[in-house]
């Protein structure tokens, strides 16, 4: 059995780990506001989760990259970009983009939604399993931003005026927002509630 700070009548700072009597509201060591369990956490998780999902839809529908050469012009969505890489035989890079832009974002929506429901309704997975899932989501979520940087590099590099240019598509904005919103959703989650009963 483990004693938690809350069971001991204390409140812990999640920023620096210092422990204080339950009636203290600000950590005297690092200045962070203290709360034994954040009552608004789940509400904020769902708010960011929904916002992230809403902007993830246009991110997949609208073009990410607009390529113009002398005799043709093409628009590629996220999935289209992966397929194009595959057709050129760049399997490894296609896999990197697929994992970063499709697998991680979709997996993140499922994982955060699952964790929030699991804490509210209780128990489809062991505490250790949920803890590990949250740690993975927090660690891996930011890597989805790769595709936005790919677009930035390509658009700034490929500028042969009339001959060939690459321009960013509007999907880059909604995709970047989606990554940021789901990162905020994962950060809003209070992992301490996984272990409470």
């Amino acid at each position: 059995m483990t004693v938690t700070a809350r069971q001991a009548g204390l409140v812990a700072c999640t920023r620096c780990g210092r422990v204080w009597p339950a009636d203290v509201h600000t950590c005297a060591r690092c200045g962070a506001p203290l709360s034994s369990r954040d009552p608004g956490a789940l509400q904020r998780v769902w708010a960011w989760w929904i916002a992230g999902l809403v902007v993830y839809i246009p991110a997949n529908v609208y073009p990410m990259l607009i390529t113009r050469t002398l005799n043709y012009s093409s628009e590629a969505t996220i999935l289209g970009g992966v397929i194009e890489l595959l057709s050129h035989g760049d399997v490894l890079v296609a896999l990197v983009v697929f994992v970063a832009s499709i697998l991680i974002p979709v997996g993140k929506f499922i994982a955060i939604g699952f964790l929030a429901l699991s804490v509210e309704k209780r128990r489809w997975m062991s505490e250790h399993g949920q803890h590990r899932l949250h740690a993975v989501v927090e660690f891996i979520g930011r890597w989805s931003m790769i595709d936005v940087f790919v677009v930035a590099i390509l658009a700034s590099l490929v500028r042969f005026d009339a001959v060939a240019t690459i321009n960013p598509g509007i999907a880059a904005v909604s995709f970047a927002l989606s990554v940021a919103f789901t990162m905020l959703a994962a950060q809003s989650f209070d992992p301490r509630t996984i272990w409470d009963d």
Binding site: V3, T4, A5, L10, R18, H131, R192
Partner: peptide, 19 residues
């Protein structure tokens, strides 16, 4: 040990609140 330690020697895990 947790009960006897002074407050400034206690730390809680920021992830699971264990003391």
């Amino acid at each position: 040990a947790v009960a006897g330690a002074p407050l400034e020697r206690l730390r809680a895990c920021p992830h699971c609140d264990a003391l």
